[in-house]
Design a protein around this nucleic acid. Sequence first.
DNA 1: CTCGGAATGTAGCCTCGGCTACATTCTGTG
DNA 2: CACAGAATGTAGCCGAGGCTACATTCCGAG
Lengths: 152, 152
Amino acid sequence: MSVLMVDSPIRSASALPEEPTQASRFGKARTAQSGALLEDYVELISDLLESGGEARPTDIARRLGVAHATAIKTIGRLKREGLAVAKPYRGVFLTEAGESLAARVRARHRVVVDLLLAVGVPFEAAESDAEGIEHHVSDATLAAFARFLARS
Amino acid sequence: MSVLMVDSPIRSASALPEEPTQASRFGKARTAQSGALLEDYVELISDLLESGGEARPTDIARRLGVAHATAIKTIGRLKREGLAVAKPYRGVFLTEAGESLAARVRARHRVVVDLLLAVGVPFEAAESDAEGIEHHVSDATLAAFARFLARS
DNA sequence: CTCGGAATGTAGCCTCGGCTACATTCTGTG
DNA sequence: CACAGAATGTAGCCGAGGCTACATTCCGAG
Ligand SMILES: [Mn+2]
Ligand SMILES: [Mn+2]
Ligand SMILES: [Mn+2]
Ligand SMILES: [Mn+2]
């Protein structure tokens, strides 16, 4: 059995994926990323509205750790995309679409954190990492997470 | 015991985190994201070099699903940051720093995919989502993933 | 009621990461 | 060995998402 595996059809344990496959994976990651910011804003605005009553630009900015001008500009984008409404100096509110997105995003955030905790990630790392990870969790993955948590 | 829990110190199961805590979590997610692109380039270049020999801009662009001009511009950034070297028309190579980053990134990618598979995520979703998730997995989380996989 | 400080909004700048269009260089086929 | 076509590189555009500086509006203490 002096096999050297030279010219084996299987090149190695981790051969490169096909080009179109790989391009599609990278493309999905880029797409997911581009929605991340809006998701975080909508989730945060919903949290603020539920827990206190008001979602003011300064609060939003402070919680996100950005300048207030940055927050206001992004709130403008939320309005353009039909997720939020706001009259000058009156605070920000969510549309139906905004509320429904917020609900989905919040549910997913919770499942991701719980999954991380369930596999042994320390609390603060779980919360911190989840803030980025959540935006890259597809429906299929989310469903798998939920199943895993259910049978734990 | 006609307690209504009004004015209880614990407001609800999911109270908002403290402002500085939340800002730091969002900030970390933003920072992680800014490094993501370079990580993917370096990992891909390393894969191409190991598996074939050459890492040419056109190949890189095709695999990432972007225009070749975009890839060339980013390769310029890799050079500025000391991760890659390339002479005109000669293909791209990694510096020591680049190789070492690539090794870490590839190892982390593998652990993330394995973790996803281990909790029941279907293969293609695991590969696809991992491409985004990997960039938000801290060292603490990575270690927890590895421990979980070891005792499975 | 006033008025000063806080909140809000606007203007304009920057980098990153996409893109298209065009210019240049390389290279393999005839 | 020429040269057409592919690969590579350059120029310049765009939007997103940061920032600072400044203008405007609101509101509560006095
Ligand atoms: Mn998030
Ligand atoms: Mn979140
Ligand atoms: Mn990736
Ligand atoms: Mn990867």
